[in-house]
Computed example of a mutant assay.
Amino acid sequence: MIATPVQGRVSTRLGEVAYIRAGRGPSLVMLHGNGHSWHEFAPALDALAARWDVIAWDMPGHGDSDDVTAPPSIEAYAGSLADLIAALGLRRPALLGSSVGAFIAASHAAGGGEVSAVVLDEMQFRTRDWWLAAWPRVEQMFGQAEQPLEAVQPRFNRVVDTELLDRWNRERVRTGAAGLVGVMAAIRDFDLAAALAKLDLPCLLLFGADGPTVDRAEALAAALPGSTTAVVPEAGHFISLDQPAAFAAAVTHFLLDHMETTPP
């Protein structure tokens, strides 16, 4: 890694949140998926930090951030994000959210957060009925924090080596099974359609060609008229880990076309 991230912590309504910051330019805030940390974006950090002031958090209850006392809603996570943005004095940053991070980004932007552009990475655009039907499988996937290689490898296109498997399990165990399931319940219970209807800013919808959300790409695009869709070949749900160069290129191309380019 060429970019040397600076580590920091800020106080938010969900406790202290840890973050890393690297690069210079307009600000890009990155929000990882359930059971992970800012390291989800580590392979793409150098490429993104070459053009952007990259801030990647550990969402509350994850990584080096404080624990949460009860499973927060997506709106509560978005409130914590708003506190982070305010504490760092960011002016109209772009947001990039992966999986649950995409929900948090959409909630913040829909709630009036001043944002230049949003990247919704691998967003599960599903109905509540779909979630209720899928819930037994969701509990099976997230109800046990530590997973063997045979359960993890199918979620990636790249080979899951010892280093990735160790980090995967270390970060999931840190969040805990109750925390992991709580995040999924927050996704299930969030009124995504209502939030998307309020978004009136440039949006990139990013999908892995082999991921679990690409089947909803057209439906999500229809819910966000004027949005841009990009599908990354040979990538699953974790595009930044499967195809970091293509991930960074898609994000950079979109932001150069749509984001305010005056640094904060």
Rank of each mutant, 00 (worst) to 15 (best):
A76I: 01
G113E: 03
T127K: 10
T12A: 02
T162G: 15
C203G: 03
I20C: 05
S37D: 13
D46T: 12
A133S: 14
T4C: 09
G226S: 13
G208D: 11
V251G: 05
D210A: 13
A178W: 07
V17Y: 00
V138D: 10
S99Q: 02
L14F: 04
G176H: 08
R172C: 13
R155K: 12
W135I: 07
G111A: 02
R9S: 07
A194T: 08
F207T: 00
G112D: 07
A22Q: 13
G8V: 07
L88G: 05
R21Y: 08
I187N: 12
A250S: 15
T162N: 07
A249M: 06
L224K: 07
T127P: 04
G79I: 00
D189M: 04
V29R: 11
V160W: 06
L224F: 06
D46K: 11
P93E: 02
A102G: 13
T262R: 13
A235H: 05
V6I: 13
S80G: 15
F41S: 08
V214D: 10
E122I: 05
E122T: 13
M30Q: 10
E114S: 09
L241R: 15
L14I: 04
A217R: 10
W57I: 14
E150F: 14
T228K: 11
E218M: 04
E218W: 06
M123E: 07
A44H: 04
H258G: 00
H237R: 02
A249P: 00
P43S: 09
G23T: 07
G79T: 02
A42V: 00
I187Q: 15
F103M: 11
F41M: 10
L90K: 11
P154W: 10
I74A: 07
L196N: 08
F238G: 03
L180T: 02
G176I: 00
R91L: 08
T175K: 03
M59K: 06
W38Y: 10
L180N: 00
F103Q: 08
N157W: 13
G176D: 09
D257G: 14
D67I: 01
H237F: 04
G179W: 08
M1D: 01
H39R: 11
V181K: 00
D257I: 01
M30W: 09
I239K: 00
A219E: 10
A109E: 03
L180A: 04
A177C: 03
L120F: 07
I2T: 15
D64S: 14
A177V: 01
H237E: 09
L201A: 05
L14Q: 01
A245S: 12
V214M: 09
R188I: 08
A22I: 00
A235Q: 04
F41E: 12
A151H: 09
F254N: 09
A56R: 15
T127F: 08
R92K: 14
